[in-house]
């Protein structure tokens, strides 16, 4: 860990101002990912802005009938919230499928969105990694890739985004609210929040430098049967090989987002039109243009079969 300076702020405005003053600073909330990365010197911020005391820890109804989730709402609290469990069940399930009880107690809504990849080559600082060290190359391509991405990949990076929560939020059409260092705020649809790796895999999201997430809003409930189905090698405490967040309506229509296969929660709206025709048809559209490796080619049939499991349950 490199030496760093540290400050606590007490309001979003103060956080934004602090970020404006200290380029290269990082916000810290739960720290469940950032601190690990700092110990390994994968992240080495010169300055940390602790945002734990700025409020933003409430879940409120919006005027549109949806929910506004404060950036600092802990994963445990969000998963247990009555409205979330009633109206956005897949979100609650996704949260509970992630990490462990202890980590969920610390981890925040905003921090969860900002998790970095768990690609093992990203974590091994002896290895080239375009995400960790832009332009150094990608050791994962041609290496051990069982966990890595099959769609939306580039020649620079095949990392996945590890979040479960974000996959459910993608299916729910959530919006990320932010405040910039200059004090202005904006709303980013979750579809545009995370990026594909392209030639700049070191940039995970479309947040600008110093921009702070203040909330995630969910539109008004869409009903239907909601699922979050996470597939992994052990029963708990592992990142997804593949996960499916889905809403299936009584008429067979619905929405599907997939985790564990791309640099961002993966959703192809046009594929959802195929839902009445079954999992194979949906998966074919979802995964069109996929570029799997020898190690992770199984994710292609696994997406189809996991979606098949969800649809079978929805029909039951």
């Amino acid at each position: 860990m490199r030496p760093f300076t540290y400050q606590r702020v007490s309001s979003p405005a103060e956080a934004a101002a602090a970020a404006a003053q200290m380029p290269g600073a990082k916000f810290i909330a739960g720290g469940t990912n950032l601190l690990d990365l700092m110990k390994l010197q994968i992240e080495a911020p010169a300055h940390l802005i602790d945002v734990n005391a700025i409020g933003l820890d409430r879940i409120e109804k919006t005027d549109e009938g949806g929910l506004r989730i404060g950036a600092l709402v802990r994963n445990t609290d969000l998963a247990a919230h009555k409205k979330v469990r009633e109206d956005y069940a897949m979100l609650s399930r996704a949260l509970l499928a992630g990490a462990s009880g202890q980590l969920r107690n610390k981890a925040t809504t905003a921090g969860n969105l900002l998790q970095r990849t768990r690609c093992p080559y990203f974590y091994d600082t002896n290895q080239p990694c375009n995400k960790r060290q832009p332009g150094s190359g990608c050791a994962a391509i041609g290496g051990y890739t069982r966990q890595l991405a099959v769609v939306g990949v580039s020649d620079a990076c095949i990392a996945t985004h590890p979040s479960d929560m974000a996959v459910a939020m993608r299916a729910l059409d959530a919006t990320v609210e932010t405040v910039k260092p200059n004090g202005s705020s904006r709303r980013i649809p979750i579809a545009d929040f995370h990026r594909l790796p392209g030639n700049t895999p070191h940039i995970d999201t479309n947040l600008q430098a110093g921009e702070l997430i203040t909330a995630v809003t969910l539109p008004k409930p869409i009903g239907g049967k909601q699922y979050y189905r996470k597939v992994r090698d052990r029963a708990s405490y592992a990142f997804a090989l593949v996960s499916i967040a889905a809403v299936i309506q009584r008429d067979g229509s619905g929405r599907v987002a997939v985790g564990g296969i791309a640099h961002k929660p993966w959703r192809v709206e046009t594929a959802e039109a195929e839902l009445p025709r079954g999992a194979k048809a949906v998966a074919a559209r979802l995964l069109a243009g996929a570029r799997p490796t020898e190690d992770n080619g199984f994710k292609i049939p696994l997406v189809e079969r996991t979606l098949g499991a969800v649809l079978s349950e929805a029909r039951a």
């Binding site: 768990r118 093992p120 080559y121 974590y123 091994d124 290895q127 050791a139 041609g142 290496g143 051990y144 069982r146 966990q147 090698d233 052990r234 029963a235 708990s236 405490y237 592992a238 990142f239």
Partner: peptide, 29 residues
């Protein structure tokens, strides 16, 4: 069901060299 040190056959090392990536059973298993 899960334990395997994955070998990078190009660079000659066990890639999944931490407890996040080298999975052993948890209680739920």
């Amino acid at each position: 069901l899960m334990e395997e040190l994955a070998v990078d056959k190009r660079f000659g090392f066990f890639v999944n060299h931490d407890l996040a990536t080298y999975e052993v059973p948890v209680h739920a298993d």
